[in-house]
């Protein structure tokens, strides 16, 4: 069935995942191709009960495909998927009401009101009529949409529709919540709101998987992250382990008291690979791999001081998480 013979990059997915009894979701060597193009290549990971897992990757990495497989929307794939020990999609109906799902592009029938949409989805998820009313009231309160309960969906803003999408996903109190780019297109206030809701749900025992292509969206709420690139898992673990893995000490950030006039070619110093000038008084020195940091630092300082520059700060460059992530993705995760 698979026509693609893609180059095999070393990845975490090659390793046997560490399954245990607390694993709620197990993906084992999941592959999926579209017309000969391999979108997912042997993706394996597991999500434990109570986890908030961030599923990170650039656009087109395969995040949505993985999620659509997880919620049973894509039924043809290779590999093994189990949720709560139940094979998916073969027996997905046994998970009735256990999964809540917010798709990447959430859309409702325009003629419905917020209340009507939630009533329909609540009933279809198996909620009884007598508890539905109270549940809708509670969820709308939780997502701060109580004011628009009787408004037609066609009159809601894009952000409100996204939040309503979250409301329908959590309405039936699912044990496992799958959110595909829940914060895409939201303003900072709504992003914060969504994060708060995820935290609250997790505190009440909901296991969450949510995807994003923005690392900062997930860094402060996840217990675990998986980085996906070109259909392969590049990293699984905590945010701290990723930070350690990504962190590079091969750059030096120098701030001078005055403007740098480029009188000296710093690349002549042994071990210096290149120099960037982000600001007139700032230098970013890229060093070769495996250099003696002390020696190179001393040589750079000596040269600058010999030219009469006064050095205000001289520190190893620590890029922010987003820069590291982009570097990681571009480098294929082989750093």
């Amino acid at each position: 069935m698979e026509k693609t013979k893609s180059m095999r990059l070393p990845s975490v997915s090659e390793k046997e995942p560490n399954y245990n009894n607390s694993s709620l979701v197990i993906l084992d060597k999941i592959s999926k191709s579209y017309r000969g193009y391999k979108v997912l290549n042997s993706v394996s990971f597991h999500i434990d009960k109570g986890d908030v897992m961030g599923y990170i990757g650039p656009n087109g990495a395969g995040k949505t495909t993985t999620i659509r497989i997880l919620v049973g929307l894509l039924r043809k794939f290779e590999g093994r998927l189990q949720i709560k020990g139940i094979p998916v999609p073969a027996r997905i109906e046994e998970l009735n009401g256990m999964i809540g799902y917010l798709p990447q592009h959430v859309s409702f029938q325009r003629w419905r009101t917020v209340d009507h949409a939630l009533k329909t989805f609540g009933r279809l998820s198996g909620l009884d009529e007598d508890i539905l009313e109270e549940r809708i009231r509670k969820v709308l309160n939780q997502v701060h949409l109580s004011d628009v309960r009787h408004k037609k969906i066609v009159h809601l803003s894009g952000g409100m529709i996204q939040i309503l999408g979250l409301a329908q996903a959590i309405l039936h109190n699912p044990k496992f919540l799958v959110l595909d780019e829940p914060m895409a297109g939201l303003d900072p206030e709504n992003r914060y709101k969504v994060k708060q809701i995820i935290r609250e749900l997790n505190r009440n025992g909901t296991t969450v998987l949510f995807s994003s292509h923005i690392l900062s969206d997930v860094q402060d709420i996840t217990t675990k992250i998986a980085v996906l690139n070109r259909g392969q898992i590049m990293h699984i673990g905590s945010m701290d382990t990723l930070r350690t893995k990504l962190h590079s000490t091969n750059d030096i950030d120098i701030v001078l008291s005055g403007k740098f006039k480029q009188t000296q070619d710093l690349t002549k110093i042994a071990g210096v690979k290149g120099v960037e000038y982000p600001q007139p008084n700032k230098l970013l020195i890229h060093l070769e791999d495996q250099v003696n940091l002390d020696e190179v630092s001393r040589d750079i300082q000596r040269l600058l001081m010999a030219d009469g520059y006064s050095i205000r700060s001289f520190t190893p460059y620590v890029p922010n998480l987003e820069e590291l992530y982009i570097r990681f993705i571009n480098g294929g995760g082989n750093q």
Partner: peptide
């Protein structure tokens, strides 16, 4: 508009 996605993920 992918309206049906929210329906077909439910047991219908």
């Amino acid at each position: 508009e992918h309206v049906y996605t929210l329906f077909v993920v439910r047991p219908i």
